[in-house]
Simulated scan of single mutants.
Amino acid sequence: MTVGIVDYGLGNLGSVRNMLKRVGAQSVSVRTADEIAEVDKVLLPGVGAFDTGVTRLAEAGLIDALRDFAGTGRPLLGICLGMQLLLDGSDEGVKSGLGLIPGRSVRFDEKLGIRVPHMGWNLANPTREDPLVAELPEESRFYFVHSYHVVPERAEDTLAITDYGIPFSSMVRTGNVMGAQFHPEKSHTFGMTIMRNFAAL
């Protein structure tokens, strides 16, 4: 079973690849629609601005490829910006996202007395049982770096909640499409559990 890591010029693919290797998963970089179609699972990383991410995917011809892949029922995981790209859009930009999970990303409000971006270690508390969060210990901490947070349209799409001024959705899942706002590849044993679980889906 091979995990295809989407290489569209955004994100630290090396760290993701190393973490997958540590959990015993085989991975390859995928850059074309044909390559995406051939793998068993897809991981969409990403750092930076929302519109830049959408533009890079579009230029590489990967938007329809990712939608088609999700339609096959095979597992698709977005991390950090990659999670936000799974949604309909973001207040950070004007472009449409992949539209695989209904919702948008909105900016944290500094009026809550918090620093933006949200940067550093924080808890992610699962809202339900799910294979992606199986065997996570209580008070699992993950590494976050983001100014915008996901607001799913449907409460049932939230898989984990994190508190930063307000409770926000730090993990989402709709069927085979799932996302993590934090960086599992930088989150030590807790992130390793998430990656191991994803590789086993």
Rank of each mutant, 00 (worst) to 15 (best):
residue 165 G to D: 06
residue 113 G to K: 06
residue 173 R to G: 10
residue 127 T to H: 09
residue 119 M to R: 02
residue 83 M to T: 01
residue 52 T to D: 12
residue 125 N to Y: 14
residue 25 A to R: 00
residue 58 A to G: 12
residue 165 G to S: 11
residue 124 A to E: 08
residue 144 F to W: 04
residue 14 G to P: 11
residue 176 N to E: 09
residue 193 T to S: 13
residue 38 E to P: 07
residue 75 P to Y: 04
residue 124 A to N: 09
residue 23 V to D: 08
residue 34 D to T: 14
residue 16 V to I: 13
residue 11 G to A: 09
residue 114 I to P: 07
residue 166 I to N: 11
residue 134 A to R: 14
residue 44 L to F: 05
residue 40 D to A: 13
residue 136 L to K: 07
residue 94 V to K: 15
residue 45 P to R: 06
residue 93 G to W: 08
residue 96 S to R: 15
residue 174 T to K: 14
residue 136 L to C: 05
residue 201 L to H: 09
residue 18 N to F: 11
residue 32 T to H: 07
residue 112 L to G: 12
residue 98 L to P: 00
residue 71 G to I: 03
residue 195 M to D: 09
residue 150 V to P: 00
residue 166 I to C: 07
residue 39 V to W: 01
residue 15 S to T: 06
residue 157 D to Q: 08
residue 194 I to H: 07
residue 175 G to K: 11
residue 42 V to H: 05
residue 1 M to G: 14
residue 177 V to E: 10
residue 166 I to A: 12
residue 100 L to Y: 06
residue 46 G to S: 03
residue 150 V to H: 03
residue 29 S to G: 13
residue 14 G to A: 14
residue 131 P to H: 02
residue 117 P to T: 05
residue 138 E to D: 15
residue 153 E to N: 11
residue 91 D to E: 15
residue 35 E to V: 03
residue 100 L to D: 09
residue 130 D to A: 10
residue 85 L to P: 02
residue 96 S to I: 05
residue 162 T to P: 04
residue 34 D to P: 09
residue 118 H to Q: 12
residue 83 M to A: 02
residue 36 I to W: 05
residue 129 E to A: 15
residue 29 S to F: 15
residue 5 I to M: 05
residue 84 Q to H: 01
residue 113 G to L: 05
residue 105 S to H: 04
residue 168 F to D: 01
residue 168 F to K: 04
residue 182 F to T: 11
residue 170 S to T: 07
residue 43 L to H: 09
residue 187 S to I: 03
residue 125 N to K: 15
residue 53 G to S: 00
residue 59 E to Y: 11
residue 133 V to K: 08
residue 29 S to M: 15
residue 139 E to S: 14
residue 155 A to R: 13
residue 99 G to Q: 01
residue 143 Y to F: 12
residue 52 T to E: 12
residue 65 A to V: 06
residue 3 V to E: 12
residue 70 A to I: 02
residue 76 L to F: 01
residue 147 S to L: 03
residue 23 V to R: 04
residue 151 V to G: 03
residue 13 L to N: 00
residue 22 R to W: 09
residue 73 G to S: 07
residue 198 F to T: 03
residue 167 P to H: 04
residue 100 L to M: 06
residue 50 F to N: 09
residue 163 D to V: 13
residue 159 L to D: 06
residue 64 D to Y: 07
residue 23 V to F: 05
residue 90 S to Q: 04
residue 167 P to Y: 00
residue 186 K to P: 10
residue 47 V to E: 02
residue 161 I to G: 11
residue 8 Y to G: 00
residue 6 V to D: 02
residue 122 N to L: 03
residue 50 F to T: 04
residue 180 A to F: 14
residue 53 G to V: 05
residue 131 P to Y: 03
residue 125 N to E: 15
residue 35 E to K: 02
residue 129 E to I: 08
residue 170 S to H: 00
residue 116 V to I: 05
residue 192 M to V: 10
residue 75 P to C: 06
